[in-house]
């Protein structure tokens, strides 16, 4: 009855994991800013998830999948480090509790976002650690604790990154709405 078991496993995988395809793609797309790389990363993440699915004992399948996607994004960023993409490699590792000291001040960041045409471009321009935290919260509506689990950062760090991300976006938004004054 191996065939039945395989079919059943595949069906469970689709019901529990594949339904989060858009979430996985959205995260990869925003983090890589590259549609082709995002597709490769997501496809590989599902392959990994599928292989590891037997070891997945219930729980939050989306958080589990997004953790894999995030790790793939980090590997991808590391592999192209030599191409000096904008500080993607500064995405902190699992368990890292970095103080985000390298993050730009709102003024510096705003100056660098002159060309951002819309909110999407502004999100893509956020420093990676802030960007992923904001995405998991605003796009996926994850709790602080789940975001902490996916990103490997303490809850306090999640909170401060979220606040910084929103401050940066709000500042850019203000400038857009009210011109340069302020």
């Amino acid at each position: 009855m191996r065939g039945d078991e395989t079919a059943d496993r595949t069906r469970r995988f689709q019901d529990q994991v594949l339904i989060h395809l858009d979430a996985a793609y959205g995260l990869a797309r925003y983090m890589t800013r590259d549609a082709v790389a995002a597709e490769d990363i997501v496809q590989d993440a599902f392959l990994r998830a599928h292989r590891a699915f037997d070891g997945f004992r219930g729980g939050d399948a989306r958080a589990w999948l997004l953790t894999i996607v995030r790790n793939n994004v980090r590997s991808w960023a590391a592999a192209r480090r030599d191409r000096a993409e904008q500080a993607l490699e500064s995405l902190p590792g699992q368990g890292a509790d970095v103080p985000d000291a390298d993050a730009p001040t709102p003024e510096d960041w705003l100056a660098a976002q002159e060309d951002a045409a819309d909110l999407r471009a502004l999100i893509e321009g956020l420093p990676p650690a802030f960007r992923e935290t904001l995405l998991l919260r605003e796009m996926e509506e994850m709790s602080y604790r789940d975001i902490a689990a996916v990103t490997g950062a303490p809850v306090g760090t999640v909170m401060s990154r979220l606040a910084r991300a929103r401050d940066l976006l709000a500042a850019a938004w203000r400038r857009r709405e009210f011109g340069e004054k302020r």
Binding site: T10, Q14, L18, L21, E39, V42, Q43, F46
Partner: peptide
Amino acid sequence: LRARILADIGA
């Protein structure tokens, strides 16, 4: 992409 993943998992 969805189609490729479905193919990957033999669905």
